[in-house]
Amino acid sequence: MLTLVWLGVVVAGFFALAYGNAAGWLWTGAIAAALAAAWGAHLMPLLVVIVLAGLLVVLAISLNFPPLRRALISDGVLAVFRRILPPMTPTEREAIEAGTVGWDAELFSGRPDWGKLLALPAPKLTAEEQHFLDHECEELCAMVTDWETTHIYLDLPQPVWQYIKDKGFLGMIIPKEYGGLGFSAFAHSQVVVKLASRCSALVVTVMVPNSLGPGELLMHYGTDEQKRYYLPRLAKGLEIPCFALTNPHAGSDAAAIPDAGIVCMGEYQGRQVLGLRVTWEK
């Protein structure tokens, strides 16, 4: 019985230390106290307590002094991982350093402030977005089945394609001034969730132009001329964007694709234009 009480106290104490992100010296003291209590209550032989105490001293000295810990442990572990992991490319570094960090950074701090999460306002759909979800999305879902699309037609039927284009499904994130629906990211996600419950091919067809497609890139980085020309065409489905995600040596691993595009001047339709020369290998 005494052993069970000791184990219960030890487990509860360690849980409290972990929850409070306690410093290493507190862990050392707690373990030492647990060993002392076990010896005092005759739960362990003296020899076992001495051996465990010796290990504790070695670990405490190695782990609680940062310079010593780095020299004995961290540097060696990092060296192993550096040999295993591929080097970071300039593009990957730019992606990591770009943008902003939201509440999810709290999760990696070790002590997240849950109050910040609870203080964030819950996303809401506008009346227009809710109407689209309740009507256009429902009607589109009724037009397809996953089985017919993937096993019989091997594509979305032509009336479904036309409905997608006519109702603006391909331009949900494009502003209204360019012919899009101007929906929020939350509305986009809710539409995707709804369509995914009906047909996988359908949801990918709608999702890719609104996420991996060039619409958002054009809105942020396109010239006024490019926006006026391409965004209305993308919103109406006159241009169908795609995402090239394959390579003989990389499969669908986008980060491992070695192909590149080189910005340069070249002749197109009889005139010199600025464009890309690609190194695709298919």
Rank of each mutant, 00 (worst) to 15 (best):
M143L: 12
K176M: 08
A53V: 10
S252K: 12
L107H: 04
I61V: 15
Q272D: 09
R70N: 14
L117T: 03
K194P: 00
N210L: 04
W161D: 12
K282E: 11
L35K: 01
D134C: 05
E92V: 03
W161R: 14
L43D: 06
I262T: 09
A22E: 02
L118G: 03
T149I: 03
V80G: 05
M44P: 00
L72I: 11
Q272L: 12
I257W: 00
F132R: 01
R83L: 14
G261A: 15
A41P: 04
V192C: 10
F132W: 01
A95F: 09
D113F: 07
A201L: 13
P45L: 07
L276G: 00
E94A: 15
W114E: 09
G222I: 07
G179R: 04
T246N: 13
G215T: 03
G76M: 02
I164K: 01
D155M: 07
L154H: 15
I73W: 10
Q269W: 01
I174V: 13
F132S: 01
M44L: 15
A18R: 11
L68C: 01
L59W: 09
K116F: 00
D253W: 06
V144N: 02
W161N: 13
H151C: 08
G54N: 08
G266N: 05
P45C: 05
L181F: 04
M265N: 13
L52D: 04
L17P: 02
W6L: 04
M172S: 05
D104W: 12
N210I: 01
W147V: 14
M143W: 02
V203H: 09
A254W: 10
R271K: 15
R70E: 14
T91N: 11
N21I: 02
Q158N: 08
V193N: 12
E225P: 01
L217D: 14
L133W: 03
A105H: 06
A22H: 02
W39N: 06
L133I: 05
T150D: 12
V51N: 00
T100E: 13
A196I: 00
L218V: 14
A127I: 07
A235H: 02
A23Y: 05
A18Q: 10
A37L: 14
E225W: 03
F169W: 05
Q162N: 14
Q269L: 10
R111K: 14
G115Y: 02
L107M: 13
V192Q: 09
F169D: 02
E129M: 06
R70I: 08
A33E: 04
A187K: 03
G171V: 06
A244P: 03
P90V: 08
V192L: 07
V144W: 01
G40F: 10
W39E: 09
A260D: 11
M143P: 00
T149A: 12
G29Q: 00
Q158A: 12
Q158F: 08
E225V: 09
M219K: 11
N247T: 07
K236M: 06
E216R: 13
D134S: 10
P157G: 08
Q269M: 08
A254E: 12
S109F: 06
I152F: 11
A187E: 02
W39C: 08
M44A: 12
E239G: 00
K165Y: 08
E129F: 04
K116P: 00
H151W: 07
S62F: 07
T28E: 09
S200M: 11
T89Q: 07
I61F: 13
A254G: 03
